[in-house]
Simulated assay, not measured.
Amino acid sequence: MKQDSAPPQPQEKRRPPDVDLSKPRFHLDLWLSFTVQNWILDVGRPVVTLVLPADWFPLNRPGAAEYLHLLYNITAPLILLKMLGRSPRSLPSSAVHLGIVVVVMATSFQLVADSVTRRLMLIGYQLHLSVRENPVMKSLRPSSLIDAFELLFYFDDALGHLRHIPLFLTLLFFFSGCFCHRKQEETTPPAAWMLLAPNAAYYWYLITEGQTFILFIFTFFAMTATVMHQRRRGLVPDCNGLFMLYSFCAALCLVAVWVSCLWNDAVLRRKHPGLIYVPQPRSVYTLHLHLHLHRQNDHTVGESA
């Protein structure tokens, strides 16, 4: 007699292999260390230069800003490695090593260029002007030394800003692993909302001062495309992914407000020609400082007359 076959078992729905099914948690230690490092060791450098008296440190020796920059050279690769370690995916070790080398090399270039720039500012160098347009450089003898300064600032602009490429690639790679199933979707924790404003403000500083708008916007578009792709698989951003998306959106709004306020500035337009116009905060600072000193001189001359 033919035995009845067992009823077919329902097949378990296949899960994406790159999705962690454990309960998503907000990496508070990672984002807190990332934010504190950026605000103290990156944003804090120009603040320290403005606050501390110039005669506290000899000009031929490193100052407080240089020591902060040295610490940033050490901590930035460690934070990126920590972020990569929290991702459910893994990169080839050669790619990780190459990224760390680029970060260290580029930050070292910026350390030298920023140190020279700070000392030039003490003798009247104006950051809103080009190298050859600066009155300090016009009086430099021999005039061939101007080429040396142009080479220095070229290395700063072309090679020093390479450190942002591994940063944004790491953020994008980390974001690609910040997804969970709809059943696991949770609200953004209070700690994420507390870190949102300083994190977005740092991205604004990174875009404006570092001139990384193209990198930022391409990363943001890639993150948006990743969200659309993962939604078709039934996945949504977890609390870390939402934190990154909200930070990028807020930073983009801050940049839009910043650019709109300085849109009609003719001097900054000469400093930042081209289609993408994102003025640097330090250029805005030296421009307004120069205008303020010029008005004071005119007022003094008028009173003496």
Rank of each mutant, 00 (worst) to 15 (best):
T226Q: 03
D29L: 13
R25W: 05
S143W: 05
T226H: 05
N73Y: 12
Y72T: 05
T187D: 14
F149V: 04
V131F: 06
P198T: 01
M244C: 02
A64L: 10
V96D: 00
M223F: 07
Q211A: 03
P190H: 05
S94A: 05
A222M: 03
C180E: 06
V259C: 12
L91F: 05
H272R: 04
I214R: 02
D147Y: 14
T300N: 12
G302L: 10
T75Q: 02
R295Y: 09
Q11H: 12
D20R: 00
Q110W: 07
R163V: 05
A6I: 06
L169E: 08
W263R: 14
T170S: 15
S260Y: 13
S115D: 08
E185R: 06
A197G: 14
L196D: 07
I79S: 01
L287W: 00
V51G: 06
Q184A: 05
A76S: 13
V259A: 09
R15G: 06
L71S: 14
C261P: 04
T208C: 09
I214H: 02
L235F: 02
T187G: 15
K23E: 15
V259K: 08
A305S: 03
L41D: 06
I123C: 08
I207D: 02
A256W: 10
L59F: 09
P135T: 01
P237Q: 02
F109K: 00
L81Y: 13
